[in-house]
């Protein structure tokens, strides 16, 4: 049994109005414990709607979302419980900060869970550590932080609920390369240290290539592709067609391959590219 699973999940916005839009169309996916899943798709492909289905914010028009095999909408308590078990961090989460101190903002979720003061405190400190916010910054006003720091505080606000599944919607958007790198490495560390499931929603393929164990590609409310990073990036033409892009380096190797050079097409980091070229050059020398 999968940790999180959807069964023929469909969702329609504005049913019965002229604004009717199918956001999800018969989606079936399974997410296992400990995976780092990247859900990619262009704007409006249904990926954000899917995330809100995962934590029960939206109710399926038809089909089911199963957490540990149980329908998350089987009862009201079950739905509320799901919100805490599946932590969802929205795009630009820093815009949802509202408390007067960093500490209080991170503590908002755990407090809503009705935990004891000691437990809340423990969780705030642990979450802050994961995102690299030092304890001496706890009394700072969130608005006095830099953009990247605010983002990390907001992510800590979700981690502090200790969800079994952490979902991050476009966690790196709008950040500079250094900020992007920080966020990605904290996500990677968090997963390695906790062994928990993480789902990242993104349209940045470069980010995905570095850390994901499984990729789901959404297009027009449907699952277009799924598989390992290799499986998905192989189809670079199709990815471009549906408004996504593959890393530059992948493009280079796909082109070389098409030109008849015996290189692999499954290259998406410069390190892999370097190794591949070296291998070929060595092979060539051996032949000569």
């Amino acid at each position: 049994m999968s940790l999180l699973q959807t069964e023929n999940l469909s969702y329609i916005y504005g049913e019965g109005t002229p604004f009717r839009v199918t956001a999800l169309d018969n989606v079936n996916i399974e997410i296992e414990k400990g995976e780092l899943v990247a859900v990619i798709g262009h704007t409006g492909s249904g990926k954000s709607t899917l995330m809100q289905q995962f934590n029960g914010l939206l109710k399926p028009t038809s089909g089911k979302v199963l957490l540990d095999g149980e329908d998350i909408h089987s009862s009201k308590t079950k739905t509320l419980e799901t919100r805490f078990r599946v932590g969802l961090c929205f795009q630009y989460p820093e815009y949802q900060l509202f408390e007067n101190t960093v500490y209080d903002d991170i503590a908002f979720g755990p407090k809503n869970m009705g935990l004891s003061k000691a437990e809340v405190d423990k969780r705030v400190r642990t979450a802050a550590k994961y995102v690299g916010i030092p304890e001496h910054a706890f009394e700072t006003h969130p608005f006095d932080l830099s953009g990247g720091e605010k983002r990390r505080v907001a992510i800590a606000g979700v981690i502090s609920m200790e969800p079994e599944i952490l979902i991050l919607d476009e966690p790196t958007s709008g950040l500079d390369p250094r900020g992007r790198e920080q966020i990605l490495s904290l996500i990677k560390n968090y997963r390695e240290q906790t062994g928990k499931t993480v789902i990242i929603v993104s349209h940045s393929m470069d980010d995905v290539a570095k850390i994901a164990t499984k990729v789901i590609v959404m297009n027009n409310a449907k699952v277009e592709m799924r598989g390992t990073v290799d499986n998905v990036f192989e189809k670079s033409d199709r990815l471009c067609e549906i408004g996504l892009s593959v890393p530059q380096i992948t493009e280079v190797f796909v082109k070389l391959h098409a030109m008849g050079y015996p290189v692999s097409e499954k290259i998406y980091t410069t390190e892999q590219g370097f190794a591949e070229i070296k291998k070929l050059l060595k092979g060539g020398e051996a032949l000569a």
């Binding site: 500079d176 390369p177 250094r178 470069d206 380096i249 280079v252 410069t270 370097f274 070296k278 050059l281």
Partner: peptide, 20 residues
Amino acid sequence: LGLDVPQTCALAKMLKDDGI
């Protein structure tokens, strides 16, 4: 400076550093 280099430049640089 906290910036990225395009992957293509990065690979070329790695190869160059390796004496290629």
